[in-house]
Design a protein around this nucleic acid. Sequence first.
DNA 1: CGCTTCATTGACGACGTTCAAGACATGTGG
DNA 2: CCACATGTCTTGAACGTCGTCAATGAAGCG
Lengths: 245, 245
Amino acid sequence: MTPTFKIDHTNCADCPIRHRAVCAHCDADELEELESIKYYRSFEAGQTVIWSGDQMNFVGSVVSGIASLTQTMEDGRTQMVGLLLPSDFVGRPGRESAPYDVQATTDVVMCCFRKKPFEELMNTTPHIAHRLLQMTLDELDAAREWMLVLGRKTAREKIASLLSIIARRDASINQKGGAIVFDLPLTREAMADYLGLTLETVSRQISALKKDEVILLEGKRHVTIPDMGRLMEEAGDDSDGGFLV
Amino acid sequence: MTPTFKIDHTNCADCPIRHRAVCAHCDADELEELESIKYYRSFEAGQTVIWSGDQMNFVGSVVSGIASLTQTMEDGRTQMVGLLLPSDFVGRPGRESAPYDVQATTDVVMCCFRKKPFEELMNTTPHIAHRLLQMTLDELDAAREWMLVLGRKTAREKIASLLSIIARRDASINQKGGAIVFDLPLTREAMADYLGLTLETVSRQISALKKDEVILLEGKRHVTIPDMGRLMEEAGDDSDGGFLV
DNA sequence: CGCTTCATTGACGACGTTCAAGACATGTGG
DNA sequence: CCACATGTCTTGAACGTCGTCAATGAAGCG
């Protein structure tokens, strides 16, 4: 309920995602142009930001919170195809309608740009286009990495993979000799939709990882990872990535 | 064995992928610059174009044939994460080493650009950067569509989805009242790696679709699709896409 | 002709789904 | 304050899809 980010500023210089978002490479002049076409919108957890098929009249960045991209089949099966974290970009310049549902998984604040002006700005400021290309290539890599998870990993490995990803980005709080602590931002159902599983299987595998002490649980969402290397082994990843410690 | 495309030309104007590749929007001057840094390479079916982790000193376009991007886990499980058709782009400007194995699925001809000069060219010619952004966004959409296939579809639906995709792009030969005919460019194993299945399951489901007359088979690779709408229903897609006839 | 590669088919079992019941926490109204 | 409803999560039992292991078939090539 307490907002993690105050949205009453209008100054890009103070923005928490200033250095990672689509505007990262912009200089002062360019920022000023962006400021003139930007506005903020807030969404509550569970709210739909954009419906698949709807007209898109803005693009934008996630400032705080987590949103998800999901695809749904006619019979109701749904697959999450992307997790949008702060600084991630939403929308596609040059496209009319949204290809996926965008939903606020937690409370979300977005920095929106009216689409038309943004598209024009992209043509005149290579900094923005270049940054967007970088970010899109990164997302493509992430999507492909996820294809391996969906196509080839077991339920247990899938859970471990998801936990690694969240731990990696949330590696803010390290306690007691390198243990990593965080709160799961997703319900079991959302995790299931991301992993291509049922929520029952998610629950069972989390219980199993807890029983084997790969993770510790307090309540349903508060996770402690005592040994990150162990978790990555469980995820089926090369734990010799060697960039932790 | 008979080459489908003669590679003894050096003239971009005659290039079969001229209007769809990364060079699509280039004007005569820009093409000339590209010509000066390009060269052709041929690969036989089965050959590896680039090993994951290798230094990339070129980027390029698939001119003819089909290549695949695959990821492999330590225990040998492999997942195909992309299918590269003619005009698709290989490599990433600004990255040192390849993240995936690139393999020639059929005989392949590639139009390669030395990486350094290409990167410089990207900075000076917005046409190229812009086209690359478009293509990357399209690939991202394709990857996300595939995530739905991998995460939520049954084996039968997966096969039908793959056949639809191939049929869609290969919809060259329409015989006898709209039936679509093509040759599968993939082995059963490659299909399995793309679909996150075993080759046995692929074989069984193809036999089942044949028995149910969703497809007709001559030999192992020659496929006839009598009713595209029927196939798309089997794929679990909205057959009311409405762009066929 | 035998060898290799690619594909098909069968029998069996494991893993994940489905269906169902119940636990736990939070919120609402009597 | 308790009764009751609701949403989230856990756990159990039965089932089914797909993977594993194995045998066989078909086609191409030395």
